[in-house]
Amino acid sequence: MIKISNVSKNYGAFDVLKDCSTTVQKGEVVVVCGPSGSGKSTLIKCVNGLEPFQSGEIIVDGTSVGDPKTNLSKLRSRVGMVFQHFELFPHMSITENLAIAQIKVLGRKQDEAMDKGLKLLDRVGLKAHAHKFPGQLSGGQQQRVAIARALAMDPICMLFDEPTSALDPEMINEVLDVMTELAQEGMTMMCVTHEMGFAKRVANRVIFMDHGRIVEDDSKEAFFANPRSERAQQFLAKILHH
């Protein structure tokens, strides 16, 4: 589904990504973790071309992301993405947030888009809030709407960029529950997250990054039982104490 081959990216002399390669199979859930500044968010943003990269290749469902001939908008409309800061459109109601891209990008009819949006809103447990505006919802609720908005496009896979990092602790679980459910339904997912509990529960594989390199890329069992690199051991020791 997603094949990342030897991807490198730099800002001037600073290497953000160094020779990163990995693959995500259909239906697989891959958690990307690592210390801040390790390039994990950049890597996931390269997958749908939000961040350009200088060398290497990323193939998503047979389409090369870096190829200038690729219709990136079209590819992105098939890859769902959830951001750290939700990025709902504050000037639109929740229903409009859910419908706008379906109508403008996929060309769906108004009623169809509204229907689909409401169904997904129900699925994330927020049907009662359909008429509200994003500013009237809590962070956790906004993030669930953002997930529903991405799902409304019928994505072939979902990218999560630290979806719970901006949330108050008591709201993290409501978002993780939605993500867990999604994973169990067989959605292909790539998640940048520090939530190791989530990784242990639903991930098939864990990628550990440090200084722009993929240091570990292993099944979650192997990763949590005995991480090979010292850096990952330290990271886990720190993060699992909480």
Binding site: S77, R78, V79, M81, H85, E87, F89, A150
Partner: peptide, 11 residues
């Protein structure tokens, strides 16, 4: 992030 969200939705 608003522009990024739009792009990610395929706009």
């Amino acid at each position: 992030g608003q522009m990024a969200a739009c792009s990610a939705l395929g706009m």
